[in-house]
Amino acid sequence: MKPAPFTYHDPQTLDEAYGLLATLENARVLSGGQSLIPMLNFRYVQPDHIIDVAGIAAISGITYKDGILKIGAMTRQREIEYSDIVATHCPLMREAILQVGHRQTRNRGTIGGSLAHLDPAAELPLVACAMDGMIHLGGSRGTRDVAFTDYALGFMTTAIEPDEMITGVSIPTWKPGHGSAFVEFARREGDFAIVAIAALMEIDASQTITRAALAVGGALATAQRLPEAEAILVGAKANDETFRAAGEACTQIDAVEDVHAPASYRKSLAGVLTRRALKAAAERTK
């Protein structure tokens, strides 16, 4: 239950970090440590080098410009929780962050760390998925922006190359007046969700849904959109009947089975939580 020995590096600039990533074999990036350190303690991972990026000021902070919310990889979850920018422009993320771990882990955990770890039930990747987030990657060969769908390759597997690191994420925000909801079920507060649903919706004056996004976490290998249910929503009236139909479509997912819940339970839960999330999102539209 102690990390195996490694060599510690604490670059102060991105170029320094990129240089280390390019030259060191078997290196891991350390940000808040709330996922990596448990894995080190268990010795699930035994890197030869740890690159602590906490000192790189360029990858920390929250900005909003022209409809894009940009969050640096090293931004702590606590900063997101208390950010007025996030609360104003991205209520879905604000609601989600309150369900990320516990205060003690949010105080240190970062958004970049959560995206890099990509736990199937993690809240922040689910938000990035539902909102078409763009992940910013960097390395000595240059930078690139990867859409969440191309970024999340599978169970805890990302598109990050060994010589790259996440520098941040951009979230295109929805129009003021949209409604959103983040609903999850876990057996205890702060536990990983058995199923989580993120929903966003815009409706017009006649209560017709003009835009909708729906994504599920905890039930599949990684956070995923629910396109069949989204198709049911767009153009339909925002009412219980529509939400029930969309929920029904969500029960068709190929849910995983584990010690926490059988697949049938997750499917049923996906339907129920979808209905609840859609109802809440609709009520929050203005």
Binding site: P3, Y8, D10, L30, G33, Q34, I37, P38, N41, I50, D52, A54, R103, Q104, T105, N107, R108
Partner: peptide, 11 residues
């Protein structure tokens, strides 16, 4: 508040 078992002393 932070979990000291999830923090390296160097951090």
């Amino acid at each position: 508040s932070a979990r000291s078992c999830l923090t390296l002393a160097v951090q």
